[in-house]
């Protein structure tokens, strides 16, 4: 006698629920859980971006200090663990956060797309012929699905550019980030690319940082008004810091005019290491 849901409601489910995975993997099966993952990985990634930006400020202290900073990342953990072990662990963590962030974003946006399928989708977003007047949604929130891929592509470019040295070719010197940065960013198109990507990043963080409070359910009338401020501050800091590199390189502030060490993996890096040592001594 019991009715089926179909008989009762006539509207078929849009997404079929699959068998529940064991805890804690089941958290990732639902959209709310996935938003948690997205928020938590978002926090991690923002932390990385912030640290990355702060660390890179060493570039303003010259090639030797920059070299020393890069070296110090490899020796995190001191003599306790093999060289670069902790760095690799961090990289692995970063990579998995990135993958999770990306996967949750893509799968959730698919889900939303399926939920709006009959709604006159225009480039993946729901549109009304009456012209969707956005009332509350900010530019940043509406462009998450654009800023996200831009950032992802940029990261690949950035890695190829300054970690693997694909484009600098012979000009790329492992262990001499100052040289690499100043060489790469002195090309105007590259500088523009960095600027565009970092503006996208700032927008992404502006919505993301606010949004994660909602997703995680961190909500209290006492400090709710601070959430927007914090998001703005974070996005602003990262924007200013990161934009300074391409802009100041173009402005000639980051260049090798005053360089004392030679350029090269063996000789140059030893010289840089000694120079940094000298500063301390």
């Amino acid at each position: 006698m019991a009715q089926t849901t179909g008989e009762r409601y006539r509207v078929a489910p849009v997404h079929r629920r699959s068998r529940e995975w064991p805890f804690p993997l089941n958290l990732y099966q639902t959209a709310v859980g996935r938003k948690w993952v997205m928020a938590l990985t978002g926090i991690g990634l923002i932390g990385f971006v912030l640290a990355h930006m702060v660390g890179n400020l060493h570039v303003y202290e010259g090639p030797a200090r920059m070299h020393e900073y890069a070296e110090s990342l490899r020796t995190i953990g001191g003599g306790l663990v093999p060289k670069s072990a902790v760095l690799w662990l961090l990289r692995l963590g970063l990579l998995s956060m990135f993958v999770l962030h990306l996967h949750s974003a893509i799968s959730l946006s698919r889900m939303s797309r399926a939920s709006s399928e009959d709604a006159g989708l225009v480039s993946g977003a729901k549109r009304y012929a009456g012209g969707r007047e956005h009332v509350a949604a900010t530019y940043a929130s509406r462009t998450m699905r654009w800023t996200g891929p831009i950032i992802a592509l940029f990261i690949l470019y950035h890695l190829a550019d300054l970690t693997w040295g694909w484009w600098l070719g012979d000009d790329f010197v492992a262990g001499d980030p100052y040289h690499n940065v100043s060489t790469s960013l002195s090309a105007l198109p590259v500088a523009i690319l960095y600027i565009v990507a970092n503006v996208a990043l700032a927008f992404h963080i502006f919505h993301g940082a606010w949004s994660m409070f909602q997703s995680l359910g961190i909500n209290n009338p006492r400090y709710n008004h601070l959430r927007r401020g914090l998001a703005t501050l974070l996005a602003g800091l990262i924007l200013v810091g990161n934009l300074s590199f391409p802009i100041l390189t173009q402005a000639g502030l980051i260049d090798e005019d005053n360089r004392t060490c030679p350029i090269g993996e063996v000789e140059g890096n030893t010289c840089l290491a000694e120079e940094a040592e000298g500063h301390q001594g």
Binding site: H15, R17, R34, A137, S141
Partner: peptide, 19 residues
């Protein structure tokens, strides 16, 4: 929540709903 997700999309905190 799990029934909701069978039929509807995922929230991205736009805030259009409240408006």
């Amino acid at each position: 929540v799990e029934t909701m997700e069978e039929f509807f999309g995922s929230c991205t905190n736009h805030g259009e709903c409240t408006e």
